[in-house]
């Protein structure tokens, strides 16, 4: 195993999280290595977002330990860049200023920031919109700005919290393919949350299936669909086979969560 002598990028050790009496996450142990594209799927309320929030340092585990590149978080960790479902762009900043925000926080000069921002504007295909305000952009374009904003900050880990859930099906597919391309080029470590098994299979190098509340890892499946990938991969036999396998375990969890609720 190549991961043995290197520090894992993300390490969960027996992590539990409760909010008051409610146990959201139960005894999760997980190792994510450099360059993995891990997609976490699970029913609503399985603690997926809690996991991302704790990695980013917005939240702390109640029990257990989370290490990012070998260190525990003390407050928000900019090394773990987050792409939010609701974009969270700064409405008073132009596209390029939004993208350059992280660089500004690092104290980089204006000219340098602009040049770097341009690079990422081009990467996400928004040339010509540098001076636009977020208000003037479509949902898909806004999310591309948000992705570029995190990329420009060059974090060690990228976290995606259901980033494409609010987009229409066509736009979603375009952004999924774009994200796969970015991953193929940059090989960043990515943790991505979704409800969609198709999205998980299209993007990931590894899929983690979470149980219903309290969240636990029930399946950890390497996704051996070859990169470079595009949307056509969804038509392959292996895709269908993996999908059936994951669907069975997710379905069991969904049924269980309905039984718990009833």
């Amino acid at each position: 195993m190549e991961g043995l002598n290197q520090i894992p990028v993300i390490q969960f050790t027996n992590v539990s999280k409760s909010y008051g009496p409610m146990l959201a996450l139960n005894d999760v142990t997980l190792t994510v290595d450099e360059g993995e594209f891990v997609v976490i799927v699970g029913a609503s309320g399985c603690g997926k977002s809690t996991m991302l929030n704790m990695i980013a340092g917005f939240d702390e585990p109640t029990k257990g330990r989370i290490q990012i590149q070998g260190k525990e978080n003390t407050g928000v960790n900019p090394q773990c860049g987050m792409v939010f479902q609701q974009y969270a762009l700064f409405p008073w900043m132009s596209v390029e200023d939004n993208i350059a925000f992280g660089l500004k926080m690092k104290g980089e000069g204006r000219a340098q920031r602009r040049a770097r921002a341009q690079e990422y504007v081009d990467m996400v295909g928004l040339r010509g919109f540098e001076k636009s305000y977020p208000k003037a952009l479509s949902g898909g374009m806004r999310q591309r700005v948000a992705i570029a904003r995190v990329l420009a900050n060059n974090p060690g880990v990228m976290l995606f919290d259901e980033p494409f859930a609010a987009l229409d099906a066509m736009t979603r597919q375009v952004l999924q393919e774009q994200l796969v391309r970015i991953y193929e080029q940059q090989r960043k470590t990515i943790l991505f949350i979704t409800h969609s098994i198709d999205e998980a299979l299209l993007l990931s190098s590894r899929i983690i299936v979470m149980s219903a509340r309290p969240g636990r890892i029930v399946q950890d499946i390497p996704n051996d669909l070859p990169y470079p990938r595009n949307a056509d991969v969804q038509l392959s036999d292996r895709f269908v086979e993996l999908k059936r396998h994951i669907w069975d375990s997710v379905q069991a969890e969904v049924v269980r969560s309905i039984e718990i609720a009833a």
Binding site: M82, F84, Q86, R149
Partner: peptide, 23 residues
């Protein structure tokens, strides 16, 4: 969420006040 995003991009308390809350 905007404050969260700013902190995630490396903004300190002072930056959050000047760069996010004020505008």
């Amino acid at each position: 969420l905007l404050i969260k995003a700013a902190q995630n991009l490396g903004a300190k308390s002072k930056d959050v006040m000047i760069e996010v809350i004020l505008p």
